[in-house]
Design a protein around this nucleic acid. Sequence first.
DNA 1: CGGCTCAGTGAAACACGTTCTCGCGCTGCC
DNA 2: GGCAGCGCGAGAACGTGTTTCACTGAGCCG
Lengths: 220, 220
Amino acid sequence: MAEVTPAEAVDDQVTETTDLDELTDEQRERRQRVIDVAFEMGAEGGYEAVQMRDVAATANVALATIYRYFSSKDHLLAAAMTEWTNRLQGRVAQSPPRGDTASDQLIDVLQRGCRAMERQPKLSIALVRALSSTDAGVSQSGAEVQRLIADMGDDILAELDPQVRADILAVLGQVWYSSLMAWANGRRDFASVTGSLERAVRVLVEPHEAMARADGDSSD
Amino acid sequence: MAEVTPAEAVDDQVTETTDLDELTDEQRERRQRVIDVAFEMGAEGGYEAVQMRDVAATANVALATIYRYFSSKDHLLAAAMTEWTNRLQGRVAQSPPRGDTASDQLIDVLQRGCRAMERQPKLSIALVRALSSTDAGVSQSGAEVQRLIADMGDDILAELDPQVRADILAVLGQVWYSSLMAWANGRRDFASVTGSLERAVRVLVEPHEAMARADGDSSD
DNA sequence: CGGCTCAGTGAAACACGTTCTCGCGCTGCC
DNA sequence: GGCAGCGCGAGAACGTGTTTCACTGAGCCG
């Protein structure tokens, strides 16, 4: 949610009033309108269909105004992704993960995330592709997605040593990222993504589960 | 090495004479000149510095000629990456990996690869970034890099079950890819890349090593 | 009220990847 | 030798992300 707003907060230092909260209602609404339009265009036609001139026109703002709020097209799409991700997290967090073992639960969570993207392929591809830009504003969104995985995974892997857990989740996040990227770039189909996530979880988690069981409590 | 050449072999079917071998000497040389120029420009100024007009001018070919050999700027850079990767593989394969355990050896190999990239940061970033394009021609190069990891890893992990080994190497490849991507996009520094590779190897390989030792031969 | 600041606007300009047009020279075929 | 095909060079043209610029209107301060 934290988000720079007027200009880029990166090269030009900003007082400290850069949060969304510091915006006029009208400004917030304008910004939201832009995101919504980008979102919708992306959902319909994918990355190329989100053209800045069109977004500006449809959202009833000037082109330059978009660039006041977002440092690039990719930043804009990343912002859209952030929102979407948050909504997704809410929905996924509602129903507890299915499965007996930690691996199964992790796989369930990841696959639910995947299915959500599969339902909006054009949009997902557009958003994922935006993540691969060098734009600084994009990093935040990427971090947010990574955090989402980590949050859910932490609970599921609560048994494991925190360091190991963090490493596993980091690796999973990277597998997730690169699989999606390969999918978004047309190098893999969706089944391959979920398959590779599942195999990654098994090869990563199961040995540690086994060791934790054998090592720690041998009760049960 | 297999490489489509005149036009795109992808949307338009080509008789079957699409290999490099089927080219005139002059053509092969022209193509190589283009790659070399791109390589050099990338080494000096990174991705943005590789501008198609400049490449054409410096390589003494017409702009359209480049597009006869490469479907896009990214494809060109990917071709450069393929060459570089092959040279690297040769060098890395010469000296055997250092380390007693499989993990250590894997880490050694990966870190040697990383150091090579670190020595040419601009170029590496340019090449890695090209890998994230949607261009179809790029896939080959990506696969080639993945194969490089798999080749070296297969020997090192020879003890493990082939399926597990393949899964581990696939995961490692993805960690490698996404770490490099994050680095190339300015979201991580180099230490973070090597660190995350090392942790990934440990968390992935060590449990399986331990199990293989305990499970299979308990000699030694 | 008068002027300042500054977000916003519209339009044009710019940059760069990609494609198109045209003509030339070469090679192979009759 | 003439003709067809075509790889190529030269450069213009196109598309789209990004930047620039002159202008306007609204809030704000004296």
